[in-house]
Design a protein around this nucleic acid. Structure first.
Length: 111
DNA sequence: GCGGTGACGGTCG
DNA sequence: CCGACCGCCACCG
């Protein structure tokens, strides 16, 4: 979790995979649930698939805290309250895409 | 040991 | 865009 850069988010599945549990995203959820109150870990940067704040089910207040913390880092949400992964996804965002695509053809000159 | 239960994720209707 | 299921696996009663 600490690896997730400020202003970017990762999904439970990604966190689980990074921890070596590629086929058990639920474990990530379970682990987060077990975090102590004032944990220094950036737990707010972990979101559900599609950018949903899964915490909402368990604790709407907690989800609000998560949202405020993310917005404070510059993370934006869509009208339905989901993180815009296309912009802030650690592995799917614009930055990740640039890293993945070695070379992007330059716009051609005017004919 | 057993069955129910998720801060999950993907599929299907 | 829902809601219902299903596979998943450590916890818990």
């Amino acid at each position: 979790m600490r690896r997730i850069p400020r202003g970017r988010v990762a999904t439970y599945g990604e966190v689980a995979a990074l921890a070596g549990f590629a086929h058990a995203p639920r474990l990530a959820g379970y682990a987060l649930h077990a975090l102590p109150e004032g944990t220094p870990l950036p737990w707010h940067r972990v979101v559900g698939a599609g950018g949903r704040l899964s915490l909402a089910r368990l604790s709407p207040a907690g989800a609000l805290t998560q949202r405020l913390r993310l917005e404070a880092e510059g993370v934006s949400f869509d009208p339905r309250g989901r993180v815009r992964l296309a912009l802030h996804g650690w592995k799917r965002g614009p930055r990740a895409r640039r890293a993945a695509q070695p070379r992007r053809a330059r716009a051609r000159m005017r004919p």
